[in-house]
Simulated scan of single mutants.
Amino acid sequence: MADDFADGRNPAEPIDEAELAIEGALRPGSLGEFVGQPKVRGQLQLLLDAARIQNRPPDHILLAGPPGLGKTTLAMIVAHESERPLRLSSGPAIQHAGDLAALLSSLVPGEVLFIDEIHRMARSAEEMLYLAMEDFRIDIMVGKGAGATSIPLDLAPFTLVGATTRSGLLPNPLRDRFGFTGHLEFYEDSDLEKVIERSSRVLDVTMPEDARHEIARRSRGTPRIANRLLRRVRDYALVHGQHQGAATIEDVNAALELYDVDPIGLDRLDRAVLDTLVRRFRGGPVGLSTLAVAVGEEAETVESVVEPYLVRIGFLGRTPRGRVAMPEAYRHLGMPHPEVAALFDDL
């Protein structure tokens, strides 16, 4: 689930040129087109304007926040508005210092380097990155043992844009070398409706305001999910709708019911976690690994994909003894709930 594209497609599946064009069109091309995150947009605009006036690359930028809020899109906008080329990479792909050295040494002057999930880089690569970010230089070790020699290699000035969903895992020396850190927050429904309105024009599908609002409130505050649900509604309206190129509120409700998205945005896995926690473990507390095994998922998936939203809407709590179902979860499942306040006495 976490590795799917924004439209729900598996990365292994082929995609034609028309779909690629739509994928690109769904991403805003400038800060003016970017919806939501007003504070981060204002901070980035100032950073880019100052760099343009001084005719220098922008300072290094760290974008932190949950998946699907626009970190990659903002990196592309930084490159576009700076009129600089963009290089894309990811933390898991940089597992050795040599991988990073090859990447950095190939950058052209002023290039923007985007590293997604930067907290998952190898430690040896992180340590090399300290010097590269600060002095635009790296030291290459040649040979082994007593005969090893360090050869300095100058780099072209560049701007690093790092994205992370877990900023707490970044070592302080790396975090301190970013000139600006932007924290992205979940979107309000009103902003998501604007995202859906823009995306529906790109996808050439019309829908009334109540239909846009229904998609927005089931999108968990996340534009990526909003665009994915919009695509599924478009498909449903195309196959079952009465008007070509139009989707009604009835189409929205039918499509999202078909894809197991309930009225507050919970999907099959969310409900499985809640149901297991409440029925099998009597509301908890239960450890993360035990809960993950019970629903047949990896612990990392439950922790990074499911838990953030359930915690945010008050359905799940984290205590020193494990995960617990909150009263709102019982109400959503239509079950009476026990008193859970005592579980938090030792927090």
Results as ranks from 00 to 15, higher is better:
Ala6Ser: 14
Asp7Glu: 10
Arg9Thr: 07
Asn10Arg: 13
Glu13Pro: 09
Pro14Ser: 03
Ile15Tyr: 08
Glu17Arg: 05
Ile22Phe: 10
Gly24Ile: 06
Arg27Ala: 14
Arg27Asn: 12
Pro28Asn: 05
Gly29Glu: 15
Pro38Leu: 06
Arg41Lys: 14
Gly42Ala: 04
Leu44Glu: 05
Gln45Trp: 11
Leu46Gly: 08
Leu48Ile: 00
Ala50Asp: 11
Pro57Lys: 03
Pro58Asp: 01
Asp59Leu: 12
His60Met: 05
Leu62Lys: 04
Leu63Asp: 02
Gly65Ala: 03
Pro66Asn: 13
Ala79Glu: 04
His80Thr: 12
Ser82Gln: 06
Glu83Ala: 14
Leu86Arg: 03
Arg87Asp: 00
Ala93Phe: 02
Ile94Phe: 05
Ile94Ser: 08
Ala97Gly: 15
Gly98Tyr: 12
Asp99Lys: 04
Ala102Gln: 15
Ala102Pro: 09
Leu104Ala: 00
Gly110Lys: 05
Val112Asp: 09
Leu113Asn: 03
Phe114Cys: 09
Glu117Gly: 04
His119Trp: 01
Ala122Phe: 00
Ala122Ile: 02
Ala125Asn: 02
Ala125Val: 01
Leu129Met: 07
Met133Ser: 04
Asp135Leu: 06
Ile138Phe: 01
Asp139Gly: 13
Ile140Thr: 07
Met141Lys: 13
Val142Asp: 13
Val142Lys: 12
Gly143Cys: 12
Ala146Asp: 14
Ala148Phe: 06
Ala148Thr: 00
Ala148Arg: 08
Thr149Cys: 09
Ile151Leu: 11
Ile151Lys: 12
Ile151Arg: 12
Pro152Thr: 04
Leu153Gln: 12
Asp154Glu: 13
Ala156Phe: 01
Ala163Tyr: 00
Thr165Leu: 08
Thr165Lys: 04
Arg166Lys: 07
Ser167Thr: 10
Asn172Lys: 15
Pro173Val: 00
Arg177Lys: 14
Phe178Thr: 14
Gly179Ile: 04
Phe180Tyr: 15
Gly182Val: 05
Leu184Gln: 13
Leu184Gly: 14
Leu192Gly: 11
Glu193Pro: 08
Val195Lys: 03
Arg198His: 10
Leu203Cys: 02
Leu203Asp: 05
Met207Ala: 15
Pro208Ala: 07
Asp210Glu: 15
Glu214Phe: 06
Thr222Tyr: 07
Arg224Thr: 03
Ile225Gly: 01
Tyr236Ser: 00
His240Arg: 14
Gln242Trp: 09
His243Trp: 10
Ile249Cys: 09
Ala254Leu: 11
Ile264Pro: 00
Arg268Asn: 03
Asp270Phe: 01
Leu274Phe: 00
Asp275Met: 08
Asp275Tyr: 10
Thr276Glu: 10
Thr276Asn: 10
Arg279Pro: 06
Pro285Met: 02
Ser289Ala: 15
Ser289Val: 11
Leu291Trp: 04
Ala292Asp: 09
Ala292Lys: 05
Val293Ile: 09
Thr301Ala: 13
Val305Glu: 11
Val305His: 09
Ile313Gly: 00
Ile313Asp: 06
Gly314Ser: 02
Gly314Asn: 02
Thr319Met: 07
Pro320Thr: 04
Arg321Phe: 12
Gly322Asp: 10
Arg323His: 15
Ala325Thr: 07
Met326Ala: 06
Met326His: 03
Met326Cys: 03
Pro327Cys: 02
His332Lys: 09
Leu333Glu: 02
Leu343Arg: 06
Leu343Ser: 01
Asp346Gln: 09
Asp346Ser: 13
